[in-house]
Computed example of a mutant assay.
Amino acid sequence: MDHDDVLALFDRQLRRDVRADSVSARVERDGAVVRQVGEPHDWNGVLWSDVDEASADRVIAEQVRYFGALGREFEWKVYAHDRPADLGKRLAAAGFEAEPEEAVMVAEVADQAAEVALPEGIHLRPVTDAAGVDLVTEVHEQAFGTSSALLRRRLLEQLAADTGTFSMVVAMDGDVPVSSARMEVNEGTEFAGLWGGGTVAAWRGRGLYRALVAHRARLAADLGHRYLQVDASDDSRPILQRLGFTLLTTTTPCVRRPDAQGRRVAG
């Protein structure tokens, strides 16, 4: 895998030329930025920007005004290779709050698609209905300790759309959900995104995360994608490294809430 080539492909396919990841959202190209705009339960934010020291503050202020007029909280995903180098500091000055840095990890689909044995008593349940979504969100709340209300609404919408670019799976211990994950792909790209992988505390360290990566890799292979991509937390990054994923870049989600007051926003 050539790092620079894959990074350029990532920027083009998943940032500049990306499609909306929800049926109720749209991708807009507004001069120097590519952004996704949707309902409050959708992901709203800036995916890519082409700014420099002279234009950055002006473009940031334009996006603040745009999303502010909609009453939307939004995220500006800042990648380590984005310019200008102080983009994150400029966003902070405009009222954005930086969340923990994530590692963008990638792997060849073919290297991950081998069958992985499940722990005894565990079976995988593909999610095809609202009851399955409830299982996914139950795991999410236990694994991450956060509300899944908005996630549930978004997942139900995606499931109803049935575009063939979205799938979810739950690992079940009998009738009890213990791990879950989903895969989202953009048609016409070489990447399949792995999202939401989480396991309840009692079942961690028993191979479920690895099994769900392999399961989704086989789905991605069937769809003709070459790479798997994960925005990994500090917890999942070492697991992915052991599975053969490599670091492509890092990203810091910078979030702007409608009532945030920037210390300095150029007009």
Rank of each mutant, 00 (worst) to 15 (best):
V139D: 10
F10E: 02
A214C: 00
L135I: 05
D57A: 15
L212A: 13
V46T: 06
G132M: 02
E108F: 03
R154E: 14
E99W: 07
A161W: 06
G198T: 03
F96N: 06
R226W: 08
A181T: 02
R125G: 00
E101H: 06
I239V: 12
G224T: 09
G193E: 10
A192F: 14
D173G: 09
V51L: 15
D21W: 11
P177I: 12
A110K: 07
V178M: 04
A113W: 02
D2V: 02
G174D: 10
D11K: 14
V27Q: 04
G207L: 01
L14D: 06
E102Q: 13
R15I: 05
S236P: 13
A160H: 03
W48Q: 08
L47I: 05
V78K: 04
G68Y: 12
T251F: 08
D86A: 09
R153K: 08
E102P: 04
L9S: 10
D2C: 00
G31S: 07
R206A: 00
L156N: 11
R58D: 09
V37D: 01
G145A: 07
L9Y: 09
F166A: 03
T128W: 09
D129A: 11
P177M: 13
L87V: 12
E187K: 10
W76T: 04
E75W: 04
S24K: 06
M172K: 01
W203H: 14
H215R: 11
S180A: 15
S148N: 08
R263F: 01
R65Y: 04
A98F: 08
G267E: 11
A143T: 12
A130H: 11
